[in-house]
Design a protein around this nucleic acid. Structure first.
Lengths: 352, 352
DNA sequence: AAGTTATCTGCAATCGTTTGTAGCAACGAA
DNA sequence: TTCGTTGCTACAAACGATTGCAGATAACTT
């Protein structure tokens, strides 16, 4: 509602609009003082929309995430924001994992933002095909859409993560190990499940389909999945849960059934949480630097916005690490193992 | 980067730009079919920036919060987004409780958004005075800035909350009760501390300045505060912590010192958390509906955007309630007490 | 003092839409 | 036939800034 425009300022000082404009952009101007004074007195503030129309850029980046209430995504957003600096602001959209809403959001964002950082819910999404046509920079984070082969992405090393988690349970002597997976239509769901399978195979343990429950990354889903595992004739003695929300649900189920952890049931989660070392027992997890992941995504996007399609699509994977606490049985506390020690480096290794 | 404009479409069909424009806005147009076809073929998408310039509105609302990583603020944002519907999108800014960044953000937002929802960090902020001059709709959430008397706000009933928390500890027989407060320069910090004081007074317990630690709403702050309480010659037997982050810190301190809760130290927090019933012992808290608070804020803002300053400033307070778990001693589990039962109603009671 | 350069200024076009106004055709009513 | 109405359409003027261009002024040079 900026009532006062640049021409008001110009008129008051007695110069042309262009002079005021140039004064604002830092050029040398004769009546600079008077102009600044008039600007202050009138309370003039440049209309960014008009400026954007002329310049063709908006200084806005859309961040499309499933649910900001999930601390993991909140960290991604925070990391991205910090990496954006003062040049770009963030437009946030929660999709609730609903593909229709994702499509709506993308459609609506195009032509209003300079780029999009996108956490899609499903790997196969036909509806998104026309998005690529439009030449708006896009970066996938955490998950991707399969038929978009030429798009930048910043994922985690989910395969190794799933493998490490399962391996850890195996090392504690478990053989009846279950996996509560995310949707197998999503990148992390699929990859973590693959890591689970690979670790079992390496130890020559045949997969029991009863011990594999595909869920939906939600608290409720995790709760139900754990409940169904507990109702098996011979329940597992250890569970690898594929994300933080489902782990919470699973823990609630264990608590409700008064099942002792780790004695009766060892549990390992994916993605850490500020409270994980306060719960009973402290939760062992596979973790990664979500902040970093968001920052890299933003950095990649900004390069793409500046540089266009000059460089080939990047496919970055950030490292995961094992944080051992108490929920898988006795080990020295707080041992941390990382897939590499380049974890904190912003220029993370680009693989494959 | 929308290369193709409305005039490209017009030329292709052989009509004027205005006809295409009217077709898009739903008017009856002779060659509607041909126009729609051309739009599809050319991949035309209206330039929202240009449209906004003409219409004078951007369809954007800024949400300025301290830290989206705090689940409480994440819920506020989520609630606000849902209340915004499809008409308004959300632009998110984290301030990290830094007043300079808040000021920068506000300055930058004005002229780019239609309204601002704002969680300020300090009650006295001189720097913000020129913000009111500009007639851009603004709503305070959770906290406010004092010298802005004529601005809408959606706060919580902090006074009652602080009182209820302290009262709860008193009912468990505690007399040596400490308070880890937020910054007394912030609305909730001040009001919750006032509630604490009022409850003590009502029970004729004189305040011990050793038992009052002013902290900063952060995990680290809560940790340090609890540590300092524990190092007192006669430590308190119960603590009321003024927000969720500090409570986490305080719990970490207790855990580190291996102090049993609630036997050696009862603790009650402010604001709930998905994990509070999984920690050991489950945490008793004062809680409120953050989702609702965000939704009401957005609703108020939209009314203000539409209606201007026709109606007087609203000062809304949402109710708080006590959620009893285990951290204050044995009571029946999961008892809930609310200041009123109108909690879930979107049109919350407007007081004072 | 005259010529050359450097510095600043205003005009007008532009970014991509929307929208008021006037013109035009078609139609029914008198 | 003529007049008023209706229903579309095109033209052009906005919205509020930026910017190339040419003209004006000032500041040097010789």
């Amino acid at each position: 509602m900026s009532n006062v425009t640049i021409s008001d300022v110009a008129r008051k000082v007695g110069v042309s609009e262009s002079t005021v404009s140039r004064c604002l952009s830092g050029f040398n101007v004769r009546n600079a003082e008077a102009i600044r004074k008039a600007i202050k007195e009138l309370g003039y503030r440049p209309n960014l929309v008009a400026r954007n129309l002329k310049s063709g850029r908006t200084g806005l980046v859309a961040l499309i995430v499933p649910d900001i209430t999930n601390p993991f995504f909140a960290s991604i957003v925070r990391g991205a924001e910090l990496a954006a600096g003062e040049d770009y602001m963030i437009q946030l959209i929660n999709t609730g994992e609903q593909p229709e809403r994702e499509e709506w959001a993308i459609q609506r964002m195009m032509g209003q933002v300079d780029g999009i950082i996108y956490v899609p819910s499903q790997e196969d999404s036909e509806a998104m095909t026309d998005v690529t046509d439009r030449s708006i920079p896009l970066v996938f984070v955490d998950r991707l859409i399969k038929n978009f082969r030429n798009i930048d992405s910043v994922l985690a090393d989910n395969l190794t993560g799933g493998e490490m988690a399962t391996q850890h349970l195996l090392e504690h002597g478990h053989t009846k190990i279950a996996h509560i997976s995310g949707p197998l239509t999503s990148t992390p769901g699929k990859e973590r499940a693959a890591g689970f399978a690979r670790a079992l195979k390496a130890h020559k343990i045949k997969e029991d389909s009863n011990y594999f429950v595909e869920s939906d990354f939600t608290v409720l889903g995790g709760y139900q999945a754990m409940m169904s595992l507990l109702s098996l004739p011979t329940p597992p003695t250890a569970v690898f849960v594929a994300n933080n929300q489902m782990t919470i649900g699973a823990l609630k189920a264990l608590k409700e059934k008064a099942i002792k952890t780790p004695e009766k049931m060892a549990i390992i989660g994916f993605d850490d949480h500020e409270l994980t070392d306060l719960i009973d027992p402290p939760l062992t997890v596979i973790s990664r630097d979500a902040h970093l992941q968001g920052a890299i995504a933003m950095q990649t996007l900004l390069e793409r916005i500046k540089g266009g399609n000059q460089f080939p699509p990047k496919r970055i994977k950030v490292d995961v690490r094992l944080i051992v606490r108490g929920s898988c049985g006795s080990t020295c506390r707080h041992r941390e193992t990382s897939t590499s020690n380049a974890n904190k480096v912003l220029s993370a290794s680009t693989r494959s």
